[in-house]
Design a protein around this nucleic acid. Sequence first.
DNA 1: ATAACAATGCGACAAATTGTCGCGCTTTTT
DNA 2: AAAAAGCGCGACAATTTGTCGCATTGTTAT
Lengths: 178, 178
Amino acid sequence: MGAPSNNILWIIEDDEAFGNTLMLSLERKGFGVTLWPELPSDEQLSSISQPPDKVILDLKLGHTTSLDFIPRLKTAFPDCAIVVLTGYASINTAVQAVKAGAVNYLAKPASVSDILAAFDGQVSVEQPVEPLSVERLEWEHIQRVLEQSGGNVSEAARRLKMHRRTLQRKLAKRPKQS
Amino acid sequence: MGAPSNNILWIIEDDEAFGNTLMLSLERKGFGVTLWPELPSDEQLSSISQPPDKVILDLKLGHTTSLDFIPRLKTAFPDCAIVVLTGYASINTAVQAVKAGAVNYLAKPASVSDILAAFDGQVSVEQPVEPLSVERLEWEHIQRVLEQSGGNVSEAARRLKMHRRTLQRKLAKRPKQS
DNA sequence: ATAACAATGCGACAAATTGTCGCGCTTTTT
DNA sequence: AAAAAGCGCGACAATTTGTCGCATTGTTAT
């Protein structure tokens, strides 16, 4: 098996352990991988001689969201395919990521094959047959209201009629993927 | 306040009760609403004299997925904004819906203001009235799933991934009116 | 620039809710 | 008829939420 045709790949991921593991796996599959532990600046983007064909973008880098970075990436590298990856997956951020230009969106944990499949635009065609769990529905609702509150946790808590402390705790937990 | 500027709205929804309720609410807000209980055929689409400005599309009509309908709708009415609504939400179908051309994707239960906000997406013109509280959202979701389970509490609890005892307790309490 | 106001994150402990288990009874399915 | 499933609920353990307070940071108004 030869090198993949589109093989310049970036990982933008601040979790070093995960990023390194993923990088090694992908290099073994023949990709030329660059690991960015934080979002590249515009200066860095403009001095890139070999544009990436694919970018794996972690949604949350430190306390920053990467969503606003997607349009900048698409401007700098119009043909680059972006897959967003996150441990805090929500429908609301999935919608935003795809609207911003990502080709796909995955919840961690995601295997290398899941990620590569996501670049190919392969998503499970299966329709869910069960309704969301109460827990999951709550998470999705919280995420949506939080976004509408401009990321302001106190305001979201007021709108949700939930105690701020409780909301903080819920936001700190990763939701079960269903 | 006059009629909304983009006010031809379609609801494509096979749940009659929900569809009618939604239609009445939206008509009261000044929209010209057409309720389709099933997907319009291509013949029907091509004989429409007034294109819809907005379409609320239920993801699941009977046993059919509406995802494939989105491109046909966008072809027939390129400027029409589509919001997908579903009682069986998932990230995968959200990604697919947005890639297919929907402007947003919502999990039921969703209030009218939630739905209208979903159309407004990028342009946050009018701040919606207060979102549903988490408590209220939960209650409405439980009621929906309980009804779908034929009133069977044990089955509803299984679908909701909630303990039966807990569900019993919740059903024994009436939610606070918000 | 400064003051006022709002948001933030989080520990400690009380209060409330959920989870587990078991029971006897009723209803539904085989 | 028998088996399986559903029902309601008490008791107690486990977990989550609510309350409070604190120090710090960020935002808005003067």
